[in-house]
Structures are given as structure tokens and as C-alpha cells.
Design a binder for these strands. Structure first.
Lengths: 150, 150
DNA sequence: TATTGTTATACTCTATAACTATA
DNA sequence: TATAGTTATAGAGTATAACAATA
């Protein structure tokens, strides 16, 4: 009831919450990035490789839409992966315009080895939180993913 | 009780949660970045400008620690802000080695005008969520900020 | 000597514009 | 013509290494 009754005040609250969340996202994202060890792939390339490993072969357009970048940007990320032999390009036999990207065995190996190590510090922090807080974070992750995809 | 009893299973759960959150963070962060309109400052420069606007003058080292980047990186971000006349450098009278950065009136104006516009789409999404979900996001923002600062 | 900050250089990531190849 | 993808170029953001200035 009070939600609808206090229209503009609630709107300001939501705006403030939006800014607060956005700021927190930016901070933790940079923190993740700073945890990267030398020799690792960059964050964009890593995200793509994990996706290929988990979901199997994808077209370039599918990857670019999933990551919210232009096809031109994604092509360059893929170039870094293929140059390092972590991913491979192949033509779609049904439609010669399409390119299918897939993780190589070397790439899959890297994903498996790197994942736990990369977020080890973060998992350690999570383990120390009360159950309720972990639940809030799990729900938030789901919501943020939905909003990102909207 | 069951948390401690099922040691390694719980540890795997926390790791999976960590990866899930990290992936969601990366996705929503890129989405925020893709919403940036041409002519805007970049995200790093914007974050610094907002900080200067909110907290007042800061040294370069304080800024670099707050954003978890090296002083050399921060110096370059600050260069972009000062070149655009959104921030100004001044020497600390007590310690000539230190540089104090502050937002210019033009910079403060920009922060105020840009904030709401920049996250408008996000706030609109938040407004449509049930109250419980907004609460989960608010809690998550607090937790993520604490973890980022740890 | 230690602290604070800067510049030089290089890499990742992203975008826009212009292009090729296939449908 | 429309779709899928690539390359060229430019700019933001970051790091390491080497440096200058001040304490």
C-alpha cells in the first residue's frame, strides 16, 4: 500500500538503490579484474572461453549478443583465443556465412584449472558469510543476470 | 549444523555460488558500460569524479587505493579528468609530495546531470521488481562493497 | 632512504566504419 | 539486398618499469 501511496519518494528510493548497486558492481568487478594473475587471459576472453566450454559451439553473433558487445569486438576477442589455441573456428556446413567457435581441449583444460583458482579469494569471503547473506547474493545474481539480458 | 557436517559439499556449493555471482557481475557490468552514451566519460573516470564530488578533495594514493588500481593508472585517469576541466590538481601545503584532486564546478555539474540519466534503464527495471527482490539486491550491494574493500 | 607522483610503453577491451563472402 | 563475419583504426583502462621531487 505505502509503495503506491508515496509515489515520487519511492521513485527516488529506487534511483538511489540503482546508483548504489551500480557503484558496488563496478567496485567488485574491478576487484575481480585486479585478482587476475599474470599470464591469464583477460576477463572478456575468459568469459567467452567458459561459455564455449559449458555450452558447446556457438556462432559469433550468439557470443556477441550474450556478452552485449558488437560482433566486431567479439571477433577480436575470439582472435585472441584462437591465436592462443584455446578456441577454434569452423564454418557452419548449413550456412556458409556462419562461423562456429568451440573450445579446444587446451582451452577446456585451462577453464577447469583456472576457475577455482581465479575466484578463490571470493569463495573464501562467501564461506564466512551467514547463510542468509549467501542467499541474498544468490538471488541477486539471478536478478542481475535477468536484468542484463533484458 | 548441516553446514559444518557436510564440509566438502558445502565448499563446492560456495565455489559454484562464487562463479555464478562473478559471471553475473561481469554481465551486468558490461551491460552498464554498453548503456554509456557517446561523449560520456568512461567508467573509471566517472567513478573517480563521483567520488571527488561526494567526498571532497583526495590525494592520488587515496584514489588509487579506493579504486584498487595502481597509482600510475590512477594518474592517467586523473589526466583525462583534468584535461577536460572536470577536476583540478593542487599541491598539499603540508606535504609537497602530495597532490590533492578536486572536482571543478563543471565536474560537479556533470555528475549531477549524468547520474540519473546513466542508470535510468536500470532503475526502471528495479521499480518493477517485488519488494523482496529489491531488498536482496540492496543487501547484496552492501556485501559486495564490503568484499571489494576487504 | 622512503614516499608521492609522473611518464613511457604495452596489452586488453571496446566501438565505429568500411569491407568481403554468402544467402 | 540482407546477413554473418572480418579488419582497420581509435580511445579507455590497466600494468610494469623507470624516473623526478619532496620528506
Amino acid at each position: 500500500m505505502s509503495e503506491k501511496a508515496s509515489g515520487s519518494a519511492a521513485a527516488r528510493d529506487v534511483e538511489a538503490l540503482g546508483e548504489e548497486i551500480a557503484a558496488a558492481i563496478a567496485r567488485i568487478y574491478r576487484r575481480f579484474r585486479s585478482e587476475r594473475v599474470s599470464g591469464d587471459l583477460g576477463d572478456a576472453a575468459t568469459a567467452v572461453l567458459i561459455l564455449l566450454h559449458k555450452k558447446g559451439p556457438q556462432t559469433l553473433t550468439a557470443l556477441s549478443e550474450h556478452e552485449h558487445v558488437t560482433p566486431a569486438s567479439m571477433s577480436q576477442v575470439v582472435n585472441r583465443l584462437t591465436t592462443a589455441d584455446y578456441a577454434a573456428r569452423s564454418r557452419d556446413p548449413q550456412d556458409g556465412r556462419k562461423v562456429l567457435l568451440s573450445a579446444t581441449p587446451l582451452g577446456s583444460e585451462l577453464v577447469i584449472a583456472a576457475r577455482a583458482r581465479r575466484y578463490a579469494w571470493f569463495s573464501a569471503q562467501l564461506a564466512e558469510l551467514p547463510k542468509d547473506d549467501r542467499a541474498a547474493l544468490a538471488r541477486a545474481a539471478t536478478l542481475l543476470r535477468q536484468i542484463a539480458d533484458s
